[in-house]
Design a protein around this nucleic acid. Structure first.
Lengths: 227, 227
DNA sequence: CAAAATCGGTATATTCATTATACCAATTTG
DNA sequence: CAAATTGGTATAATGAATATACCGATTTTG
């Protein structure tokens, strides 16, 4: 029965934080001892992960100074470290799967959502507006919003399925498919979605959500041409 | 960072084999040393799992004789051992989620499926017919068939999502929702699905798959009334 | 029915991932 | 330049998991 080594998990976690923009390229990572606190692991284990990441060219480590994130464009991600089959997966596939699940879920959500859950969605939307100039934070709240919609459907397997898909998202540089000004557009889509949910209008909610994801799909197509 | 103990995984694995009918109620489990080979773990770890399972009333252990599966009806499954949120999940939810994902996938499958993949589906169908009198085996091949359809869509996130949902299936006593004669019906549904795929007829494929899962849904409704 | 094989029960030594601690050397900071 | 911070290294301790051997109860076999 398979037992995964801890430092491999840490490698994936750090990569996803870099790719998601929370550890910006070119900049310094938190100090080793801080990272240990963050991940709740020992320094030995952390350093195993960092050593591998340096071999892969993901970071470069300067004694006495710090750990610096390389330019991702130069990196060839080793398939063995990433979630299985990621290599066979395009951003388009991910968004298609999201659309499938989220559109099915939002129909249930319109029926079942509680006032408290609507409040949560409103708060997440407010957070998105607050952080519109901080892309990594913005993307995080964006995804939280979508997760909350599916969760409000009350269908646990759908939530679990979306969570599994979100794992792919973590490594897919979704943020790189957003351009200047895209945040405003995303916010307006989310407003439409939320008001449709509040009105318990299934068709409008499905339409707004679908349009939002279709828009992401188009950006993804453009992005994939730049490879 | 969370590190799960191995014997906990083993506990879940054994429970799922019992619930799926592969370790029948009332009967003897394979001997400890055989189980160790099966799971590729040491006897010490296995016995940790077995000790917990006995405390839970899932099995009773007779020295010198063997390990016997209890009657599941008496068991109160400890939520901590099962996948998160399983308690909030009905078989209906699971089937609804399956329908969402599988119907979306089969459309892509009709476009993309290769001759080789069609052969695999035919083999799985043949296996179902072979094992129609062995319910646990039958259910396994049934699920393999559905997984193969989604995999043939070429959309990895959808496959991953279905796999995540199948985790719920493992603990949901799906087999208990099948009655005498249901196997034949399932086989005929699968035949329809397969021939629609071979004809690359999206609409027919979606319709057949949808009908199949809707039928499962109705059985699940009946089953849930018997609680 | 008795011997042999098969089972669970137990104890022990070992391996290995992970933790915890302390100290060194390079660098940055004030 | 001195102090604080950083990565680099070594070592001991912990604990999960393995590997092995042997005991005693039960079942199977001849």
């Amino acid at each position: 029965m398979h037992k995964e080594l801890l430092h491999r998990k840490v490698i994936r976690e750090i990569i996803s934080l870099i790719v998601s923009g929370q550890f910006p390229q070119g900049k310094r990572l938190p100090a080793e001892r801080k990272l240990c606190e963050l991940f709740v692991i020992s320094r030995g284990t952390l350093r195993l992960a960092l050593a591998d990441l340096e071999k892969l060219g993901v970071v470069s480590i300067k004694r006495g100074s710090g750990i610096y994130v390389s330019n991702l464009s130069k990196i060839k991600m080793p398939a063995a470290l990433l979630p299985p089959n990621l290599a066979n997966t395009s951003l388009l596939d991910i968004i298609y799967a999201r659309k499938t699940i989220e559109v099915a879920a939002i129909e249930l959500t319109c029926e079942k959502i509680t006032d408290k859950q609507i409040e949560s969605l409103e708060k997440l939307l407010a957070k998105m507006i607050e952080t519109r100039d901080n892309l990594p934070e913005f993307v995080k709240f964006d995804m939280d919003f979508h997760r909350a919609i599916v969760k409000a459907s009350g269908n646990t397997p759908l939530s679990t399925a979306l969570k599994a898909i979100a794992e792919y998202h973590k490594y897919s540089q979704i943020f790189s498919s957003l351009h200047e000004g895209e945040e405003s557009l995303a916010i307006s889509y989310h407003k439409k979605i939320l008001s449709a949910i509040k009105a318990r209008n299934k068709q409008a909610a499905k339409k707004a959500l679908s349009a939002h994801l279709t828009h992401l799909e188009k950006n993804a197509e453009i992005g994939s041409k730049n490879l």
